[in-house]
Design a binder for these strands. Structure first.
Length: 322
DNA sequence: CTGTCCCGCCATTCT
DNA sequence: AGAATGGCGGGACAG
């Protein structure tokens, strides 16, 4: 099924630039935490574009009307109170349509930034009507992107237990508490597991202790993710493995090559081509979603900052909106 | 020139 | 059967 034709997508380019820049705001939202959330009134003005279906109601397919890409996409009807804040790369972020158009760039359209915008548009926890339900079509409309991109974001967030699929087109937000629980599960030692350590790349044929331990823990606690087939190579699975690499290691710095070979070669029948998937999707999104300390660019060969940020969650200092 | 990663086609899975 | 989901290759873009 094709959700959007090429020419439609090209028409949407301006909207995409807006989308990316708006997402950047989340970087500093997390950095300043709830103080910021409470302090500044939202610039967002519209409040009607998202009308979640009642929980339990039928979810007819293609319910959403075709997106109109000629007008500026909606920004955060569900997250009023979240201020516009600066991009981690110091790009000034604004909801101004012209500015978005001018600042469009590859960097501004990243999956990581889309994830931030996704988080910024979460249903309000106080809204009993939504029940923290997230509708794929609605979110795609709000963010001004095609459904396909929503799945990218959702997959990674789901790997961290931040949300889960409850029905077709519908996901339920669980929040950082659920994620902390999942991280504990992924990172806690098992009775029979050996203490793990991490060094940089290991070229030997033997699986690194950390990697072997990670694989066994994954299969024990999340049996679905290590089965063969499509799921085996899913972004969700790769993301979860990537996170686990950090949780089970003593190092805070894992380079991409090491991560890729660890995740792929040591406990899965996947081929090395999956490395691309890891580099494409898993890391940037996780990086941004976990990034809570000092939003700034992260060198591609190092995830020290990502780990530093994720440590906040392990230390019980989540800086999420809720 | 190289590495990154956005985009969207289309295969697979689900309802 | 049609819709939902998401793997993956191509190529644009940044450095």
């Amino acid at each position: 099924m094709k959700f959007m034709k090429r020419h439609d997508w090209e028409n949407a380019s301006v909207s995409r630039s807006r989308r990316a820049l708006a997402m950047a705001q989340y970087a500093q939202i997390t950095s300043a935490g709830k103080q910021i959330l409470a302090a500044t009134p939202s610039r967002c003005s519209h409040a009607q574009s998202v009308q979640p279906r009642p929980v339990g109601a039928a979810t007819p397919s293609r319910e959403m009307p075709a997106r109109k890409m000629t007008s500026p996409p909606a920004v955060s009807p569900l997250r009023e109170g979240i201020p516009a804040v600066a991009h981690w790369s110091q790009v000034s972020v604004t909801d101004d349509f012209q500015t978005y158009s001018q600042q469009q760039s590859r960097k501004d359209k990243s999956l990581g930034l889309l994830s931030l915008r996704f988080l910024r548009n979460l249903p309000s926890p106080s809204d009993a009507a939504t029940g923290r339900q997230i509708y794929v079509d609605n979110m795609a409309s709000v963010l001004g992107v095609e459904r396909r991109r929503i799945y990218d974001v959702v997959n990674v967030l789901e790997s961290l237990a931040l949300l889960s699929r409850v029905a077709k087109n519908r996901y339920c937000w669980h929040g950082p508490e659920a994620m902390k629980q999942a991280l504990k599960q992924l990172g806690a030692p098992e009775e029979e597991s050996n203490p793990s350590s991490c060094s940089s790349s290991d070229s030997s044929e033997e699986p690194h202790p950390m990697h072997a331990e990670t694989g066994s823990r994954l299969s024990n606690r999340f049996p679905h993710i290590l089965r063969g087939g499509r799921k085996e190579k899913s972004l969700r699975t790769l993301s979860q493995r990537f996170v686990m690499l950090f949780l089970t290691s003593s190092t805070k710095d894992i380079d991409l090559d090491t991560a890729a070979s660890s995740i792929i070669n040591h406990y899965s029948p996947c081929g090395p081509e999956d490395e691309k998937a890891i580099q494409n999707h898993s890391t940037p999104t996780v990086r941004h979603c976990q990034h809570t300390q000092q939003p700034r660019p992260i060198a591609e060969d190092s995830y020290r900052q990502w780990w530093s940020a994720s440590a906040d969650f392990r230390m019980g200092r989540p800086e999420w909106p809720y």
